[in-house]
């Protein structure tokens, strides 16, 4: 598998405070790498280092197998699109004029402007001044700018921040479609596990500058075992019935919790309860929250 981004021992301090610490990141070609972490965990700092916007205190960065330095950096940037922090735009220029600037800087053909405008569905607002755009539109303009020049790698820092629910959905669909359509590799950061869950193929979790988890989404799911919450007409009887059948269960505030959510256990449990004449009011699968996963991975509580 071709490695698109590889960092070794990547470290950054700000005034004695270590923001990113010995980060070894690996992003493979064609993946959507979800970069997960709470606010201030070091996501933006890492992404800025990947673009050469800020210089690491220690460590190496290789993108497309080349070191991010000097002439190579420009070569890498030519093939990289990015949307970092809040969207950037020249407020007195129209959306289209903003794209023209990026297009010129990237030396991409002008016709691509129409392509990306269509892709982010902004053809109708392209002549409006960018300063008058809503946050969602600015965000989409930023994505359009990042997509100019057919980059092989896309770095998106919290691209759904500040968007309304339909905007979030739209952004997600756009991002998910990119690798399939263009073979692009995407690194997308978020502080929401659910969001990463819906977009990513691979996940890296950063906590206080440390990369505490990095693997495929499937492996993360093994960590984030879910629970089944059952509400029944008779909690006490239900619990007794499950225990009698050796199905591990516990009770909390009138809800029965099954830790094992394998298909076999769930069918078994429900069948026994129904046969015992206990009515099932709700059966709800509860995902482990990001906090829970952090707790499990780091052994300490984090505030999000």
């Amino acid at each position: 598998m071709e490695i698109m981004i590889e960092t070794k021992n990547l470290t950054k301090h700000y005034k004695n405070k270590t923001v990113v610490s010995e980060l070894d990141m690996k992003v493979t070609k064609g993946s959507i790498y979800g970069f997960l972490g709470s606010n201030g965990a070091g996501k933006s700092t890492t992404m800025k280092m990947l673009l050469g916007l800020i210089r690491p205190a220690q460590g190496q960065i290789q993108i497309f197998g080349k070191p991010l330095q000097g002439k190579m950096r420009l070569e890498i940037l030519k093939n990289t699109g990015s949307l970092i922090e809040s969207p950037s735009y020249y407020g007195h220029l129209s959306g289209r004029e903003n794209l023209e600037i990026i297009c010129t800087l990237k030396n991409a053909p002008k016709r691509e402007i129409d392509e990306v405008l269509k892709l982010v569905r902004m053809e109708n607002q392209q002549h409006k001044k960018a300063g008058q755009y809503s946050l969602g539109m600015k965000q989409r303009l930023g994505l359009a700018a990042a997509l100019l020049g057919h980059p092989r790698l896309l770095l998106l820092d919290e691209p759904t921040n500040g968007l309304d629910p339909s905007g979030i959905q739209e952004m997600r669909e756009l991002i998910c479609a990119l690798p399939k359509r263009t073979g692009m590799t995407v690194l997308v950061s978020s502080h929401l596990l659910s969001e990463i869950d819906q977009m990513a193929t691979h996940v890296g979790i950063i906590d206080q500058g440390h990369l505490i988890f990095q693997d495929s989404l499937a492996v993360l799911h093994e960590h984030s075992q879910s629970k089944l919450h059952l509400r029944t007409t008779d909690t006490a009887a239900a619990l007794a019935e499950l225990q009698r059948n050796h199905i591990p269960a516990e009770e909390k505030e009138g809800t029965i919790i099954l830790r094992d959510t394998s298909d076999r256990t769930v069918t078994c449990a429900i069948r026994h309860l129904v046969y015992a004449g206990i009515g099932i009011l709700r059966a709800e699968e509860i995902q482990m929250s990001l906090e829970d996963i952090f707790l499990k991975l780091t052994g300490k509580k984090v505030s999000l």
Partner: peptide, 18 residues
């Protein structure tokens, strides 16, 4: 000021120009 405002530094410095 055009670059100082609206985070344009990020765009300017991640453009493939020296």
């Amino acid at each position: 000021r055009l670059e100082h405002r609206n985070h344009n530094w990020n765009t300017l410095m991640s453009a493939p120009v020296p």
